[in-house]
Measured scan of single mutants.
Amino acid sequence: GKMTGIVKWFNADKGFGFITPDDGSKDVFVHFSAIQNDGYKSSDEGQKVSFTIESGAKGPAAGNVTSL
């Protein structure tokens, strides 16, 4: 299901970062391709987002990331 969290950091040059879930669980990796914004796929530190957890090649990753 959908979770909410805060972007801990995001490196636009490398195209990835981490989200800290609101439920206190482990930080989740986020790749720019998962960000659902139109246009520039980046996110700012401290941005509140909703997301799903997908199982990626390197473990859990955020999917369907949407700014709230």
Rank of each mutant, 00 (worst) to 15 (best):
G1A: 12
G1Q: 13
K2E: 07
M3G: 03
M3L: 11
T4Y: 06
T4G: 02
I6Y: 10
I6C: 12
I6H: 08
I6P: 00
K8Y: 05
W9M: 02
W9V: 02
F10W: 14
N11L: 04
N11H: 06
A12H: 14
A12G: 08
A12L: 10
D13R: 12
D13E: 14
K14M: 12
K14V: 08
G15N: 03
G15R: 04
F16Y: 14
F16M: 02
F18Y: 08
F18K: 01
I19N: 00
I19R: 00
T20R: 12
T20S: 10
T20G: 03
T20K: 13
P21N: 04
P21I: 04
D22P: 01
D22H: 05
D22N: 05
D23L: 04
D23Q: 04
G24F: 03
G24T: 02
G24C: 08
G24N: 06
S25Q: 06
K26M: 10
K26D: 11
K26C: 11
K26F: 08
F29K: 02
F29M: 01
F29S: 01
F29C: 06
F29P: 00
V30Q: 01
V30R: 00
V30D: 03
V30N: 01
H31P: 04
F32W: 15
F32Y: 12
S33W: 06
S33C: 10
A34E: 09
Q36P: 07
N37V: 12
N37P: 10
N37F: 14
Y40W: 15
Y40H: 11
K41D: 11
S42E: 08
S42D: 08
S42N: 10
S43L: 15
S43H: 13
D44M: 15
D44H: 15
E45W: 15
Q47I: 11
Q47G: 08
K48G: 06
V49F: 03
S50Q: 08
S50I: 09
S50H: 06
T52E: 07
T52I: 11
I53A: 03
E54T: 12
S55L: 14
G56I: 04
G56S: 13
A57K: 12
K58L: 10
P60M: 10
A61C: 14
A61D: 02
A61K: 15
A61P: 02
A62I: 03
A62P: 03
G63F: 13
N64M: 09
V65G: 01
V65T: 01
T66W: 04
S67L: 15
S67P: 14
S67V: 15
L68H: 07
L68W: 04
L68R: 06
L68I: 13
L68A: 08
